[in-house]
């Protein structure tokens, strides 16, 4: 009897200790409120998601606007840390930042190391073709299409449109040159990247990005693993931003018709991926 009691007491002590250890990284949301600062990592050279404005010398972009909206909701100051693709997970895991908003594609592999919010942006594999020549994905099977070597885009096209002739080039500008020369009839990359290529072209008016995509990468906010309160806060705030129209305003500021990089909005926060992907 006594032995059983001792055992139970011991187990309870261990359980409490274990709970305590689980809470060890503490409630990050509470910590942010207490410190009065939200620390966010964004890109600093990936317009229009995050890049340094040459005149103000501050990082700005779609991701920064979302980060600012989250900080505003909390009523705290926003502190931006520049990052690059390889640094995003280490920054989160080491606790140097509270959130990552850096064109962070949600993948199963990454979800093992960090938590993701609901998606707030989607970039899909799109095309550039001469204006009016490409209107539907059904045409792709009969075309010569330029892609970038070693990209998921190439694999994806080969699987979905096996009759299309793919020609792989070293990078997107090379592929675009081949398109302008008439060697291929379309080129394919992620929509936002294609806009960047087109924005720099001297004869951009003769080309367009048809309004369909054949894949969809969902972009979410990276959150430290196990911070349930913080994740709930980010998710509900994103839904509110869409409901209030602020998400649309942020989108239009970077991808609207008057910007250098106009792109029709194909994804709204809260939408399921399958619907938006045609």
């Amino acid at each position: 009897m006594r032995l059983a009691l001792t055992a139970i007491t011991l187990m309870m002590t261990l359980a409490v200790a274990a709970c305590g250890r689980n809470d060890a990284p503490q409630d990050r949301l509470a910590a942010i409120r207490q410190a009065g600062v939200l620390r966010v990592a964004t890109f600093d050279s990936n317009p229009p998601f995050g890049s340094v404005n040459p005149t103000t010398r501050k990082i700005e972009g779609l991701d920064v606007d979302y980060a600012q909206a989250l900080a505003d909701k909390l009523g705290v100051k926003l502190e931006i840390t520049p990052t690059n693709p390889a640094n995003r997970i280490p920054l989160l895991a080491s606790g140097k930042v509270d959130l990552v908003l850096a064109n962070f594609t949600i993948t199963e592999e990454r979800a093992k190391q960090v938590d993701f919010s609901i998606p707030y942006f989607a970039s899909g594999q799109q095309f550039i073709a001469k204006t009016g020549t490409l209107t539907s994905p059904d045409q792709l099977n009969g075309l010569r299409i330029g892609v970038d070597k070693g990209t998921v885009n190439e694999i994806n096209l080969r699987e979905k449109y096996p009759q299309a002739v793919l020609v792989a080039y070293d990078d997107t500008p090379f592929a675009f040159t081949a398109l302008r020369n008439g060697n291929v009839q379309a080129i394919s990359q992620d929509g936002p990247k294609l806009i960047g290529v087109l924005a720099n072209a001297p004869d951009a008016s003769g080309y367009e990005i048809p309004a369909f995509s054949i894949s969809q990468d969902l972009i979410g906010v990276g959150i430290p693993k196990g911070q349930a309160a913080l994740k709930t806060f980010v998710d509900t705030t994103l839904v509110e931003l869409e409901a209030s129209g602020q998400a649309q305003r942020i989108y239009d500021r970077w991808f609207g018709p008057d910007t250098r990089t106009p792109l029709a909005r194909s994804y709204r926060i809260g939408e399921s991926a399958a619907v938006a992907a045609h």
Binding site: R144, F174, T177, A178, R180, N181, G182, N183, V184
Partner: peptide, 18 residues
């Protein structure tokens, strides 16, 4: 030959070649 010369050739010839 691939990028340079093909930029000089007329569009119709490139279309035929491709």
């Amino acid at each position: 030959w691939y990028f340079g010369v093909s930029a000089l050739l007329p569009d119709s010839l490139m279309a035929w070649l491709n």
